[in-house]
Amino acid sequence: MILDIVLIIAGMFLLIKGADYLIEGSVGFSKRIGVSELFTGLTLVAFGTSAPELFVSISAALNGSAGIALGNVIGSNITNIALILGLSLMIKKSTIPKSTLYYEIPFVILISLTLLFMLLDGNSALSIYDGFILLTYLIIFIAYMYNMAKNDKSIQEQLLEEIQEVKIKTMSWNKIIFLVLLGIVMLAIGGEISVRGASHFAKTLGLTETLIGVTIIAIGTSLPELVTSIIAAKKGTNDILIGNLVGSNAFNILVVLGITASIHPVIPDRSVIFDAYYMVGVIFLTELFLLRKREAGFWKGLILFLSYLSYIIINLRLG
């Protein structure tokens, strides 16, 4: 059991560092070939931040641990909104951008409902056909984000700031190739050993892999967002954070599950219908919170945080 915990922790470390290296190398590559920073921010950086969930989910699906694959995405999305956003609002009150409230959150509600209906129709499983549908949604989402960012200076500034934080100057091709390959290898190894550790850990304790996926693995792959939320709350930039969390939820469903299901059908070891309903409920609750005044503070954050604790308690009972 101790070895399983060590594998999970080591896997999470490799996933997080691997994503950093992949982003660094990818941004360096985009600068070498002259791709716009706006496009880079919307695609490479966004994809890189979802890389831990992606590699965990693909590894889990291919190893017959689909409960971890599906639980990781749904659990990460609930963690992003209920735990991370809840904590950040408790630390600092925030005003929400109009685009997030009127376009991005409704879009995430739409794709979350789509995922729920897919799971209801497939008896908690996702088929290859479902994966292709999610990837089609992804193309629409990227097109929308590109057009919006192109016409919104504040979003452009945010994306450029994210790229500049990577601290990239002109790189040699050798360094770019090294960083990209290193990042991919670390992500692959991290995904493999974390899934193996989590799967064996679940079996040792008599738990379902899905439970481990929606709790331990989901929190582990959301650690970068959790750290970012605390920093953003202290700096008073929660409005940017909320947009990032919502975008992360969209990419988790569309990129992670879209690619994973397209490669291999995702059939979990227990029903995730309740989890999917909860995911939709949490994002819908967030929209209701923000719809009236476009702002939220301690009490609304506390309700979200308590909803996360309730989710974990209910899942422990479900097994």
Rank of each mutant, 00 (worst) to 15 (best):
G258Y: 06
I184T: 14
Q158F: 12
I176W: 08
F13H: 00
K167N: 15
S229Q: 09
Y144C: 02
I96K: 00
L179P: 00
I16M: 09
G25F: 06
R32L: 15
Q156F: 01
Y146T: 08
I58T: 01
L187W: 07
N77V: 03
I142Q: 06
P265Q: 03
D275G: 06
L22P: 01
E225I: 01
S26P: 06
Y144H: 10
F201R: 08
Y146I: 09
T260P: 11
I81E: 09
V73E: 10
G206V: 09
I78W: 05
L288Y: 05
I230M: 09
A46Q: 04
M279I: 02
I189C: 04
P224H: 07
L101G: 12
L3I: 12
S88L: 06
A261V: 07
I283V: 15
T170L: 13
L291K: 13
L15G: 01
A149N: 11
K203M: 13
S199T: 14
F107S: 12
D152F: 05
M145W: 00
G75F: 03
T286N: 10
G247Y: 11
A51F: 03
V280K: 00
M148Y: 15
S262N: 07
V108C: 11
G122E: 03
T208Q: 08
M145S: 14
F274L: 12
L116D: 02
I140L: 14
A276K: 01
G71F: 02
F47G: 00
N174Y: 12
I242Q: 02
G190R: 02
L22G: 05
L285I: 11
F107D: 00
L38I: 14
M90I: 08
L290M: 14
F47K: 01
I168R: 13
M148P: 00
P265V: 07
L110N: 03
Y311R: 05
P97G: 00
F29W: 13
L42Q: 03
A149Y: 12
I128Y: 07
M186H: 00
L44V: 12
E165T: 10
G131Y: 10
F132S: 09
D121P: 00
I78K: 04
S262T: 12
N72T: 14
I142A: 04
M171A: 10
I68E: 08
S154V: 13
S94Q: 05
D239I: 00
E24H: 14
M90P: 01
A143S: 12
V185Q: 01
R196E: 14
F117R: 02
L187I: 03
V214M: 07
E225Y: 01
Y137W: 15
Y137E: 05
I184N: 01
G71E: 06
G18H: 07
K234P: 00
Y277L: 12
L316R: 02
S94Y: 04
L211W: 09
A46P: 06
A232G: 06
I217L: 11
N249A: 09
Y129L: 12
L302F: 13
N123D: 15
K92Q: 15
G11T: 03
L138K: 01
G122F: 05
V256G: 06
